[in-house]
C-alpha cells in the first residue's frame, strides 16, 4: 500500500469536516445524500461502483472528522460494506446515498435452506437503514432491512447519535453473501476506523475542556492556571496522540496483525478515560445533557463494544502465549 501524502489526507479531512457539520441539520436520508455528494461514502469502494478505490489511510481522516463532529450516520459501516460488496449493484446504491446501510456487529444468523434466522445486535441506525449486514458463523449476509422476515427493534446501547438496534431474522432471504475473509477484512478495517473516530472525539472534548477552563474563573483566576488541570489536559492530549501513533504505525504495517489490533486497543484503552477527564473538567456543567461530553462518551463506549475490545485483548494475549510456548 502507498501512504498518501499529507496534503491529500488534509483535503479529505477538510471535506469530511464540512460535510459532517452540514449533516447535523438533516434527516438520515439527507445525511446519506450529503455524505455521498461529498464523495465520502465511496472512499474505499470499487471504481465500477462509483467509488474512489482508495486505501484505509484515506478513510482515517474521514472517520476522525465523523468522530470529532458527532456524526449521526453509519458512515464507517457504509464505507466498509460498499467496498466489500465490490461491483454488486448494492454497492453503487450505498456509494450514491440511494440506500442507507449498516452492520450488526454482535450476534448473527444461521443460514438454513437459503433462509436466515437468528438475532443480531449492535447495528447502528438499522431502524432507518435499507440494508443490514448480519454475521454468519463464517462470513456474513446482507438483507433488506424492510423485507419479509426482518424485524428491527430498538437496542439498549448508549449511543445517541447512531443508536444501536437489534435485528431479528426469521426466514429472511439474503441479498448477498460475504465469505469469512471478506467479513474479516470489514472487521479489521472497522477497528482501525473506530480508532480514528475515537481519536477525533477525544480531540473535540479536549478542545472543549481547554476552552472551558480558559474562561471559567474560580478562586480569582482562570481554571486553566491550576497545574493539576493543565496536566489533566496534557494527559488527554497524550491519549489522542497515542491513538494517532498507533494508527500511523498500523498503516505502515498493514500485514502485521498486532500493529493492526493495537490501534483499536489503544483507542479503547485511552479514549473513554480521556473523555471522562474532559467531562470532569467541566464540573457540574459537564454532567448536563446539553453539553455534548456525554454524547462522545456514550458512543465511544458503544464502539468499544461493537469492536469487542475485551475479546480482542484476549486474542492478543493468546497470540503472545502461543509465540512464547
Amino acid at each position: 500500500m502507498t501512504i498518501a501524502t499529507d496534503d491529500a489526507l488534509a483535503a479529505f479531512a477538510t471535506t469530511a469536516t464540512s460535510a459532517v457539520a452540514q449533516c447535523a441539520g438533516l434527516d438520515p436520508r439527507g445525511r446519506a445524500r450529503c455524505l455521498a455528494e461529498a464523495g465520502l461514502i465511496g472512499v474505499l469502494a470499487a471504481e465500477a461502483s462509483g467509488g474512489l478505490a482508495l486505501g484505509l489511510d484515506h478513510a482515517v481522516p474521514v472517520l476522525h472528522a465523523a468522530g470529532a463532529g458527532l456524526l449521526g450516520y453509519p458512515l464507517l459501516e457504509s464505507m466498509l460494506l460498499a467496498a466489500a460488496l465490490g461491483e454488486r449493484p448494492e454497492a453503487a446504491r450505498i456509494v450514491l446515498g440511494d440506500a442507507t446501510a449498516t452492520i450488526a456487529w454482535s450476534g448473527g444468523a444461521q443460514l438454513e435452506g437459503g433462509l436466515l434466522s437468528g438475532t443480531a445486535g449492535r447495528a447502528p441506525m438499522a431502524d432507518s437503514a435499507d440494508l443490514v449486514l448480519v454475521r454468519l458463523a463464517d462470513g456474513a449476509a446482507l438483507v433488506d432491512a424492510t423485507g419479509p422476515g426482518v424485524i428491527i427493534d430498538a437496542g439498549d446501547g448508549l449511543d445517541l447519535e447512531a443508536a444501536e438496534c437489534r435485528v431479528i431474522l426469521s426466514g429472511a432471504t439474503p441479498l448477498a453473501l460475504l465469505d469469512g475473509d471478506a467479513m474479516d477484512a470489514i472487521l479489521q478495517g472497522a477497528r482501525l476506523l473506530w480508532a480514528a473516530a475515537i481519536g477525533g472525539a477525544v480531540e473535540t472534548c479536549l478542545a472543549a475542556a481547554v476552552a472551558h477552563t480558559s474562561t471559567r474563573v474560580q478562586f480569582g483566576k482562570a481554571l486553566v492556571s491550576f497545574q493539576s488541570l493543565r496536566h489533566a489536559m496534557a494527559r488527554q492530549k497524550l491519549a489522542a496522540e497515542h491513538i494517532g501513533a498507533a494508527i500511523a504505525r498500523s498503516l505502515m504495517h498493514p500485514d502485521d496483525r498486532l500493529a493492526r489490533a493495537a490501534a483499536f486497543a489503544a483507542a479503547t484503552r485511552f479514549g473513554a478515560s480521556a473523555v471522562e477527564s474532559a467531562l470532569q473538567l467541566h464540573g457540574g456543567m459537564g454532567f448536563t445533557w446539553d453539553i455534548p461530553m456525554h454524547r462522545h462518551l456514550r458512543r465511544i463506549r458503544a464502539w468499544d463494544a461493537q469492536g469487542d475490545a475485551p475479546g480482542l485483548h484476549r486474542r492478543l494475549a493468546a497470540d503472545l502465549l502461543a509465540a512464547n510456548a
Binding site: A246, A248, A262, A265, L312, H313, L316, A317
Partner: peptide
C-alpha cells in the same frame, strides 16, 4: 492476566507507533 498482558503488548506497539513515523 490476559488483559494486562495484552495491554503491555499494546503499550509496546504505541512506542513503535511514535518511533517509526
Amino acid at each position: 492476566y490476559h488483559r494486562r498482558l495484552a495491554e503491555i503488548m499494546v503499550d509496546i506497539e504505541i512506542i513503535k507507533g511514535y518511533v517509526e513515523p
